[in-house]
């Protein structure tokens, strides 16, 4: 931040002489202080997990959910300024609903990420607005079968022309991360927020590109990674919030839902155990 005070950081949409947009960089700073959020793209679904920092003891445990359902099959989690995240989710819902009105079918996760990327980018262009202070992770399962058009009531002629390609592959798990600049990429594993560095290095160890991790393993890994990432802000209490979306024949039947209580508790138990295990290792090393 050597260029602070040069005047190029005062207005949105103004470049500095060396080609940077400082307002966007400051927005990234806001994200870096948010609770850690991660997404894992498993072979049969996607997991979203969030380290929800408890800002007051007066808040009801388990209330104030932060991971939002956008369409039946897509979820969004964000890290950074909470109200910006709310607005992002609200806009994503509108986009998904508008897509359905136009195409009579659910929005593909890739299209939603594209639309939201464009939307976020628009907030870097005008001096009358500020960029989004969030990085959002979008995870969804696009149906692997050819869905009927919304409102379809029959199956059409049983014989005659059709032109459908046999054996074509559709859908699957998708995961995208959208940054304050509007930049978005598709990921095997995505992490943002305060503990992103350690979360990313943990995600890299999972070798997600090989596509071997199952959804249930993904849930447990996600819990472990959030607990591990929380070590960076250990003085604060947190709640683990976790959702998943599976294939049509999987546990959520293609819907984005909260991870069931039993599985969540099991994953948390394993995560705590793994942490303690790490501590033990450290202790042993120290003893040595």
């Amino acid at each position: 931040m050597t260029s602070i005070g040069t005047g190029y950081d005062l207005s949105n949409s103004v470049f500095s002489p060396d080609g940077r947009n400082f307002q966007v960089e400051y927005a990234v700073k806001a994200v870096e202080n948010g609770g850690t959020a991660i997404g894992i793209r498993c072979k049969d679904g996607v997991v979203l997990a969030l380290e929800k920092i408890i800002s007051s003891k007066l808040l009801k445990a388990g209330a104030n959910k932060r991971i939002s359902t956008v369409d039946r099959n897509i979820g969004v989690v964000s890290s950074g300024l909470l109200p910006d995240g709310r607005h992002f989710a609200s806009r994503a819902r509108d986009e998904a609903a508008q897509w359905r009105r136009t195409y009579k079918a659910p929005i593909p996760t890739s299209a939603l990420a594209n639309h939201m990327g464009s939307y976020v980018q628009m907030y870097t262009l005008y001096s009358s607005v500020r960029p989004f202070g969030i990085t959002a992770i979008v995870g969804g399962w696009d149906p692997e079968i050819e869905l009927p058009v919304d409102g379809q009531v029959g199956s059409g002629p049983a014989t005659g022309s059709g032109g459908k390609k046999e054996g074509a592959k559709h859908g699957g798990p998708f995961l995208y991360m959208i940054e304050p600049s509007g930049l978005y990429w598709g990921y095997y594993g995505a992490a943002t927020g305060k503990g992103r560095q350690s979360a990313k290095s943990e995600l890299e160890k999972l070798d997600l590109a090989a596509g071997n991790l199952t959804l249930e393993e993904g849930v447990k890994e996600a819990a472990r990674i959030i607990y591990a990432a929380h070590e960076d802000s250990k003085d604060k209490d947190f709640e683990l919030e976790m959702t998943w979306v599976s294939s049509l024949d999987g546990p959520t039947k293609g819907r984005h839902q909260e991870v069931p209580k039993e599985l969540l508790e099991e994953a948390e138990r394993l995560a705590k155990k793994a942490l303690e295990g790490d501590d033990d290792d450290d202790d042993e090393k120290m003893e040595d």
Binding site: T69, R72, A96, K104, D150, G151, Q152, V153, Q257
Partner: peptide, 23 residues
């Protein structure tokens, strides 16, 4: 009317999606 039925079907779908944003 069947096309009006299809419209209502889609209307109910969007209602269902909105109602189930929160579990």
């Amino acid at each position: 009317d069947v096309s009006d039925m299809q419209y209502l079907d889609r209307l109910l779908s969007s209602l269902d999606i909105r109602e189930n944003y929160a579990e």
